[in-house]
């Protein structure tokens, strides 16, 4: 052991003593294992730092260069033929193997995909949504329906569903007289019901007028004789014979579903299809809410 190492150890010993003195003066509880370990760590670091540094400094002072030189030299500066340091060599080899793995397997198979994350999120959400709303009561459906209505329907039908002064269909009643007459005069085949097309001109003149007044009035009071021609498909009660033809008495689930799927062009204007924009539960909720608007 040369004088250098001794001096270094002396300095580290001094540091340790100073640290201990400081710690004791601060009245720190050394029985606490965390404090004890911290002190131990400080001692190890001080010793190791000065020990290692002094070893290398003394080596630089005393070591002689020796070994076999390579052929090249640059202005008299040469290079020894050294073995690769094993740590470096293994790391290099590991990097090569990792590169091949990453190139062939890692990147192609494990790459992050934003769309993949989106798909998983949506799938998980829908699963949870279906589960939560499997047995939702009417209040939950109605408030869900209202939210959907405000986002998807309100821009045309208005926040209250009144159709904004005739700019869109008014949900406070099933149909206006003008709408009924338009359908009677022009026929209707847009909604894809099993009954198929309703031809134009099923009723004329005063008959059509009487039907329009009766249907627009919510099908109350005495049924006009002319309504018989409608009853063939829409039923005497106007309910659409269980989904075979559109209900002209109320907004049932079949009607809302068909209009959302096919869209509709009527006397007021055109409503686009909302086919991909709602799940069956949301359609049901929307139906409940729309029904609540007519009551």
């Amino acid at each position: 052991m040369n004088s250098m190492v001794i001096k270094a150890l002396g300095v580290s010993g001094l540091l340790i003593v100073a640290t201990l003195a400081m710690v004791l003066s601060m009245d720190i509880d050394l029985n606490d294992p965390i404090n004890a370990m911290t002190i131990l760590g400080a001692i190890v670091i001080a010793t190791a730092t000065f020990g290692v540094t002094s070893k290398y400094i003394s080596q630089m002072k005393t070591d002689k260069a020796e070994g076999e030189l390579t052929d090249e030299n640059w202005d008299g500066i040469g290079e020894y033929k050294n073995e690769l340091p094993s740590g470096w060599a293994y790391t290099f080899l590991g990097t090569l193997i990792y590169t091949v793995w990453y190139f062939l397997i890692g990147f192609p198979l494990n790459a992050y995909s934003q769309i993949g994350e989106y798909n998983e999120e949506v799938k998980a959400y829908h699963k949870k949504f279906e589960e939560v709303h499997k047995t939702s009561d009417i209040q939950t459906l109605q408030s869900m329906g209202q939210s959907i209505f405000l986002v998807q329907c309100a821009p045309c039908h208005g926040n209250t569903g009144d159709g904004l002064n005739g700019k869109a269909h008014d949900f406070s009643k099933r149909m206006s007289k003008e709408q009924v007459l338009h359908v009677i005069n022009n026929g209707q085949n847009q909604l894809g019901y099993p009954m198929g097309e309703m031809p134009a001109g099923m009723a004329m003149g005063a008959d059509a007028e009487a039907i329009a007044v009766y249907v627009a009035g919510g099908m109350k009071g005495e049924q006009p004789a002319a309504y018989g021609v409608c009853a063939g498909c829409h039923g005497a009660d106007g309910q659409g014979m269980g989904g075979m033809a559109p209900s002209i008495a109320m907004y049932d689930e079949v009607l809302v579903g068909h209009v959302l799927e096919h869209g509709k062009k009527g006397v007021i204007g055109k409503m686009p299809s909302f086919k991909t924009r709602m799940t069956p539960i949301q359609e049901k909720a929307l139906t409940v809410y729309i029904q609540s608007l007519t009551m």
């Binding site: 002064n165 700019k167 686009p272 924009r277």
Partner: peptide, 21 residues
């Protein structure tokens, strides 16, 4: 184009607040 139609755009461009409060 999927969820608005010509007549809506016409009303909306003329007076947006009448449609969207």
């Amino acid at each position: 184009g999927n969820y608005r139609t010509t007549d809506w755009h016409e009303n909306h461009m003329w007076e947006p607040e009448e449609l969207v409060a």
